[in-house]
């Protein structure tokens, strides 16, 4: 694994488990393809794709790919950092089919767009939902289908 990572001048963060590398978004597909295809690494399973919003101050978003190699019992996390405006990254659906739903989730809740995704729709929220709720600056809608969204405390009965 380390040989492949060195090729890209990456070294895993030692404090993290699983070992984590941060990669530029343009190298992502190259690296992931190599990690998946190389017989020495063979990360044949994508356990999870996580999206993170670091908030308007940091002004970045992250996508983390949790890889696992079944024959080698090895885990690796690959991290990309994206700008918060118009976050866009290449889809990895062609490498791991399972990425399809994970990426739809990240799109649904954070609004990260995955290029060349076969079917980038919302997966959890209804199709007519406005906004991406896991963004730190998300404001919920006032009404959804005629129902008030925010909690309204019941009024005490007026004295008769």
């Amino acid at each position: 694994m380390n040989a492949v990572l060195e090729k890209y001048q990456l070294s895993p963060e030692s404090s993290a488990y699983p070992p984590t590398v941060r990669v530029d978004s343009q190298n992502l597909i190259l690296l992931l393809t190599e990690l998946r295809e190389n017989p020495a690494t063979y990360f044949d399973m994508l356990s999870c794709v996580t999206g993170i919003d670091n908030g308007p101050e940091a002004n970045t978003m992250e996508v983390i790919y949790h890889l696992y190699s079944i024959p080698f019992h090895q885990s690796l996390a690959v991290k990309v950092v994206l700008p918060r405006e118009n976050p866009e990254i290449e889809s990895v659906c062609h490498l791991w089919k399972t990425a399809e739903w994970h990426e739809r989730e990240a799109y649904d809740l954070l609004g990260i767009r995955f290029k060349n995704h076969p079917d980038l729709r919302r997966i959890l929220l209804p199709a007519d939902w406005v906004g991406h709720p896991l963004r730190k600056d998300y404001q919920h809608q006032e009404y959804y289908h005629g129902v008030h969204v925010a909690y309204q405390a019941p009024q005490p009965p007026s004295d008769r």
């Binding site: 929220l125 709720p133 998300y138 129902v147 008030h148 925010a150 909690y151 309204q152």
Partner: peptide, 20 residues
């Protein structure tokens, strides 16, 4: 009844089925 544990941050929860 009223949204339960999601009453404050539950953007996705109807705050009581009696609203519908």
């Amino acid at each position: 009844n009223c949204g339960g544990p999601y009453w404050q941050h539950g953007y996705h929860v109807v705050k009581g089925v009696d609203k519908i």
